[in-house]
Nucleic acid binder design. Structure first.
Length: 351
DNA sequence: TTAACCCCTTGGTTGTGCAA
DNA sequence: TTGCACAACCAAGGGGTTAA
């Protein structure tokens, strides 16, 4: 297993956080694929699927359908809905190497590709905000069928995941609206506690590895910025706060942190805000990134100033929707180029 | 008066673990 | 090979406040 982990490290930087169980799964099917991609000079990808990858999945599915004669993607990917044909479909999948074919040309673990394919072809996925009528329906159906989201999904044309989460939101007893002083205090304490605990654990680990004292002493003076917001155990913090769910906690913490990093100033306005926009556009343009998933937001933050990365991501989003016409139809690099060529001179002029 | 900004909520997507 | 549960991250939008 250690040998496999070492080999995978090259393709999956976070491999040490993955359980042995999943490592075995990935090793069995993906390691050889990853090596093959490497030979072609293609790196393994994580994060959001790009349009190109989504197109490739659809192409793979269509080719597999014509190869096997299975007559629809729904039958291929949701065969449990067709009990009479299920066995035949299964046999065809094994015979024609379903996994290999479906993941061809996409440098990601096959399992994630399979999930993405199911999402693309799921006939029950309706998106957008739940209406009052839908919420009432959901409560009614849940009372009748319990948490059988598959059945409810067929009745409401929403994905099982969406329904499950919406129900838990409706039923949860968490507070909404403005945070009270007491809640903010609780949150701050909770975050401080988990960060302290984490640092103590890391120090203990370092002591075990007996690092030379010069390497550790300079780091004791301050907490690295990323530790204040990156990879915090939000469900643990949710439990400690008690009255808010983890997503509310996370976002509130980022707001508190941003104000603190900004010397207590609540809002950034005027020339300072303008300068931030200019820096953001320039930095993103310099990075020459094709897809938004490839932006290293922490690096952008380091280059621009003291903000949690989520703040800059939000800033970029707002900039995009307010300044770029037809932004939905444009690729990320087209959006950046538009901002750089059309808006940057305007902002600099205003400054 | 209004554009800019922030707070907050919520739906969508990806990633992991486990089990059958 | 497939399904399910859940954690975590990302995108988007509504609405209130305030500086210009």
């Amino acid at each position: 297993l250690d040998v496999i982990k070492q080999q995978l490290q090259e393709f999956i930087p976070h491999v040490k956080n993955i359980s042995d169980y999943s490592i075995r799964k990935i090793a069995g099917r993906d390691l050889a694929r990853f090596k093959e991609f490497k030979k072609q000079g293609i790196a393994v990808r994580f994060g959001r699927f790009t349009q190109k990858e989504n197109d490739q999945i659809q192409k793979n599915v269509e080719e597999f359908l014509s190869l096997t004669g299975i007559d629809s993607a729904e039958k291929l990917l949701f065969s449990y809905k067709y009990p009479e044909e299920r066995k035949t479909i299964q046999r065809l999948k094994t015979k024609h190497q379903f996994c290999e074919k479906i993941s061809a040309g996409i440098p990601r673990p096959w399992r994630l590709i399979y999930y993405r394919a199911r999402k693309i072809y799921d006939p029950n996925i309706r998106k957008g905000k739940y209406s009052n009528e839908e919420e009432k329906k959901l409560l009614r159906y849940q009372a009748r069928h319990g948490n059988d989201w598959k059945t409810i999904s067929a009745m409401m044309s929403r994905s099982t995941l969406s329904l499950g989460r919406k129900y838990s939101i409706i039923k949860s007893a968490v507070n909404n609206g403005h945070w009270s002083k007491k809640e903010i205090q609780k949150l701050t304490h909770a975050v401080e506690e988990v960060i302290k605990k984490r640092i103590e654990e890391e120090e203990a680990e370092e002591e075990e590895n007996v690092l030379p004292s010069s390497e550790t002493s300079s780091r004791d003076l301050l907490i690295e910025r990323e530790k204040l917001y990156y990879n915090l155990p939000w469900t643990e913090i949710e439990t400690k706060v008690g009255t808010r769910n983890w997503r509310q906690c996370k976002q509130k913490w980022h707001t508190i942190l941003r104000a603190r990093m900004n010397k207590g100033k609540e809002v950034i306005r005027g020339n300072e805000a303008l300068q931030m926009k200019i820096n953001l556009i320039k930095r993103l343009h310099e990075m020459q990134v094709e897809d938004i998933n490839d932006v290293k937001w922490i690096e952008v933050c380091n280059a621009i100033g003291d903000f949690p990365s989520s703040y800059l991501q939000d800033k970029f989003y707002k900039l995009k929707i307010s300044c770029v016409p037809l932004w939905r139809r444009k690729t990320f690099s087209e959006i950046i180029n538009y901002l750089y060529e059309k808006k940057l001179p305007e902002f600099e002029e205003q400054l």
